[in-house]
Design a protein around this nucleic acid. Structure first.
Length: 421
RNA sequence: GGAGAGGUGCCAGAGUGGUCGAAUGGGGCGGCCUGCUAAGCCGUUGUAGAUGUAUGUCUACCCAGGGUUCGAAUCCCUGUCUCUCCGCCA
């Protein structure tokens, strides 16, 4: 959420952001209502001031034993008109709020304008594997080795659910531990194990609601949502809190499963692990001071890259163009790992800086020093990493012509084996 | 699931419907005192909005939202969260 005052003073910039992000939010309607609102507030508060004065007088008269009925009768009218104005104010404030929460964050100047095709390659790392045979796509080799079960999972839970088995299941667990350990021991994050469901307010705080209601699984009876990412529960850990400047930056890492309905995504990435309703992910979340957030974004990115480097998987980093940026983000890097079997770059991480957008929605503030003014923190998060596509890359890039899979050296300690056969 | 108790400022904790933004204590901050520390003494201590830039004025906020009233921290209703007990359960 943006500051209404900021929108008022930078209307053109905000309109441009809406356009570039391909959102439809009506900035003009918002500003128009805002003028009306402030007019009305002036009136209401004037009347209130009057009411407060007279009310005080009535108290004094009563104390002195004087007759106050005529004054009270007058005040009854004033009270009524105040009530009327307040009702009017509310009927204006509601649409203002509805418009305001639908205005997206403003992309940073370094973000290319345009759609998906305008994403810019920021860097690449590693050599594309050169083997003299064509490896099988992950879904075939995984099925052959019996480490992932697509059919039974679908029978039980529907399509786009999978069940891991044997060394497949073990690899999930190994990857999770490997990634978390790295972020904790090497990168200095604090491990968190949050709830996997969250309330509406929490979903609003990080910006999933109101826009993405249809994309989430919802427990209707309790009005709870299954989290689509650990970003939600971890960022919301500090919702409505006042942090101390000395505590910043706060860095958390968390493993959670992620649940996504992927409504409207059918027909795209239909095979294997590319796009599934439930997947595992290790996430990094940071709460930082405003002046440090751009540096923190770069270090967040490198923390995520570190995982792929340790696994020796080639990847590239894209700077997302405005149209590809999420609603709440000011800038986002996507990391794409290369998968040799299906010959594709697969998104395994998004590292975003939200500036104070989420913090304002969720009211996460800090005080630099005792007595200093409260300020909103900046929040960032990035996957470190999403597992399914990392698994795809391992199964395809580490495949041998004998139909076995080498375990990446960094993972051997966690897997307990060197080879999947 | 059933029964009960409660949510007040940084913390603890008062508060009869009228001068309560809120007693008192603690903490924090500033000052005095002091060789230093402690004690003691004095002062100070919120957030947000409107107006505006003048050291200003006004408004709102005692979990949230409604209601009663000229006037609500105080009365009523609903929601929510926390705690205790019973039941159930890994």
């Amino acid at each position: 959420m943006l500051d209404l005052k900021y929108i008022r003073e930078n209307a053109e910039r905000v309109k441009q952001a809406v356009l570039h992000k391909r959102e439809n939010a009506d900035v003009d309607a918002l500003l128009e209502l805002d003028v009306k609102r402030r007019e009305l507030i002036g009136k209401v508060e004037g009347a209130r001031a009057e009411q407060n004065k007279v009310t005080e007088k009535i108290a004094q008269m009563k104390k002195a034993g004087e007759e106050a009925t005529s004054v009270i009768a007058e005040m009854r009218q004033l009270a009524e008109s105040i009530k009327k104005m307040e009702t009017e104010l509310k009927t204006i404030e509601e649409p203002i709020y509805q418009l305001l929460i639908r205005i997206p964050n403003i992309p940073h100047d370094s973000v290319p304008v345009g759609g998906e095709q305008d994403n810019v390659v920021y860097k690449t790392w590693g050599q594309l594997p050169e083997q003299d045979f064509q490896p099988l796509p992950h879904y075939e080799i995984a099925e052959k080795l019996g480490i992932i079960d697509f059919g039974r999972a679908s029978r039980m839970s529907g399509s786009f659910f999978v069940s891991y088995r044997g060394l497949g299941a073990r690899m999930e667990r190994a990857l999770i531990n490997f990634m978390i350990d790295m972020h904790v021991e090497k990168h200095g994050y604090v491990e968190v194990f949050p709830p996997f469901v969250a309330k509406r307010e929490a979903m609003f705080g990080t910006g999933q609601l109101p826009k993405l209601e249809e994309d989430m699984y919802r427990c209707e009876l309790d009005d709870l949502f299954l989290i689509p990412t650990a970003e939600v529960p971890v960022t919301n850990l500090h919702r409505e809190e006042m942090l101390h400047g000395d505590d910043l930056p706060i860095k958390y890492t968390a493993y959670t499963p992620c649940f996504r309905r992927e409504a409207g995504a059918y027909g795209k990435d239909t095979r294997g692990l590319m796009r599934i309703h439930q997947f595992n992910k290790v996430e990094m979340v940071k709460f930082v001071t405003p002046e440090s957030s751009w540096d923190e974004l770069e270090s967040l990115l490198s923390n995520a890259e570190d995982v792929l480097q340790a696994l020796e998987l080639p990847y590239r980093v894209l700077t997302l163009a405005t149209g590809d940026l999420s609603f709440a983000a000011a800038k986002c890097y996507d990391i794409e790992v290369y998968a040799r079997g299906i010959n594709k770059w697969l998104e395994v991480s998004s590292c975003s800086n939200y500036l104070d957008f989420q913090a304002r929605r969720a009211s996460i503030r800090f005080r630099r020093d005792k007595g200093a003014k409260p300020e909103f923190v900046h929040t960032l998060n990035g996957s470190g990493l999403a597992l399914p596509r990392t698994v795809i890359a391992i199964l395809e890039n580490y495949q041998t012509d004998e139909g076995t899979i080498h375990v990446p050296p960094a993972l051997r300690k966690y897997m307990g084996v060197d080879l999947i056969k």
